[in-house]
Amino acid sequence: MVEKDKTIINLMNRLKTFFEMSSVEFVDYWDGDLCAIGLKRQERLVYISTYAYLKEENLKYDYSLEIDRLVETQKLNIIKDVQGINEVELISTLRQFLCLTTK
């Protein structure tokens, strides 16, 4: 994986302290985007980006909830796109969509 922006690295480290992440794969379908990462569990994928908020005092996140059907259809099915949420909202969404358990 290409080295990511500190906003993504910090988020990944915090997620590892909140959740049991052994069943979650960090995927990087966006090598050129240093401010994006994907979290995948089974066929569920969450694309997270901080790019639009790097210069803001309070960091926010954009995300897409997707069902990964690349093998079958060569495309991702986007369920929901959200822009400009805070970390608390993002963590809640991740917990629910990926069915994560807390530590």
Rank of each mutant, 00 (worst) to 15 (best):
M1D: 10
E3R: 07
D5I: 00
K6I: 15
I8K: 06
I8V: 12
I9Q: 10
I9V: 15
I9L: 14
L11N: 08
L11F: 04
M12R: 11
R14T: 05
L15E: 07
F19Y: 15
E20S: 12
E20Y: 11
E20H: 12
M21R: 02
S22P: 00
S22H: 11
V24R: 05
F26L: 08
V27I: 15
D28Q: 07
D28R: 03
W30F: 15
W30M: 12
D31A: 13
C35Y: 02
A36Y: 04
I37V: 15
I37S: 07
G38M: 08
Q42H: 13
Q42I: 08
R44C: 13
Y47I: 13
I48P: 07
Y51W: 09
Y51C: 01
Y51E: 06
L54K: 10
K55D: 09
E56C: 01
N58M: 09
L59K: 04
L59H: 00
K60N: 06
K60G: 01
S64V: 10
E66M: 15
E66G: 06
D68N: 15
V71I: 12
V71K: 15
T73N: 06
Q74T: 06
K75H: 10
L76I: 13
N77F: 14
N77A: 10
I78M: 15
I78G: 03
I79A: 05
I79G: 02
D81H: 14
V82H: 06
Q83Y: 13
N86K: 03
N86G: 10
E87N: 05
E89C: 04
I91G: 02
S92D: 12
T93H: 08
T93D: 08
R95S: 13
R95C: 10
Q96P: 00
F97V: 02
T102Y: 09
T102S: 09
